[in-house]
Amino acid sequence: MEFKDYYKILGVSETADSAEIKSAYRKLARKYHPDVSKEENAEEHFKELGEAYEVLKDPEKRGEYDQLRKYGARGADGSFRPPPGWQSATEFGDGAFTGADAAHFSDFFDAIFGRGGTAHRHYRTDGRQSGFSMRGEDLHQPIALFLEEAFNGVEKSLRLRVPEVDERGLITHRERTLKVKIPAGVGDGQHIRLRGQGGPGVGGGEPGDLYLEIRIAPHPHFRVQEKDLYLDLPLAPWEAALGAEVEVPTLAGRVKMKIPAGSREGQRLRLKGKGLAGKPAGDLYVVLSIAMPPQETESSRKLFEQLAKTVPFNPRAHLED
């Protein structure tokens, strides 16, 4: 079993007082909490952090940990063994559990403090426990999709790390592959629930659920806002001035669209129901921009000169006093 240096995890000294420990935890929790962090492996870091804080914030547990840290046998490879006959006085399940997500704590924690409800010592080898049952853990996993996949639906193979109770009653993790058919019309940040695909229940408890969080990769043309899509559509100056019929891409294929005469930069035209699915479906907003011709020929320069002479237009009128 690997030794966990809780002081190192929290970045505090062995003599740190409870205020220092709390402050260190809050800073690191802000950095690694899966709900607020965008760091890689945030969840793994946060589990370690939660475990370290659970021990060091409680004077009794901290005292026990300090003793073990001092007297436990440590191998050269970092492995750790508690002294023979070790028994914690603050075992979880005796009211010592303080609300942290104990299901994620390490084997090291488990060996020292036990784990109320989920500790291996509380299981029977048939995985049941008399008079006690607990629902399995809910699992959360992000799933990345291209916008087209979200729009049309797609079948994906997911690799999950699922907790399970082995024949000795210990919690282990195993890799599982799950095929999921994502239905058409899911949006960014949306969640899909697969009932019963989470961690196993204990003592006849129901299994937990699996929550998949949809993350749609940025698209080169479309921006997603809730169920609506936005597309920047460049127009030639004369198309904007005179009006035109142009082809625009949508996720369901290209459609023809009428640009009204006298259109302006930044103006939005709506294609109703051409966004992501829903009740009602989202819309596609086409945002107009005016593009200049790339190279001016002599004839085009003359035409612009003619425009400059004949059209009384001051685009900076609003900047003048």
Partner: peptide, 9 residues
Amino acid sequence: TTLEILDDR
């Protein structure tokens, strides 16, 4: 298993 989209529908 039952797959549910957790949206406003």
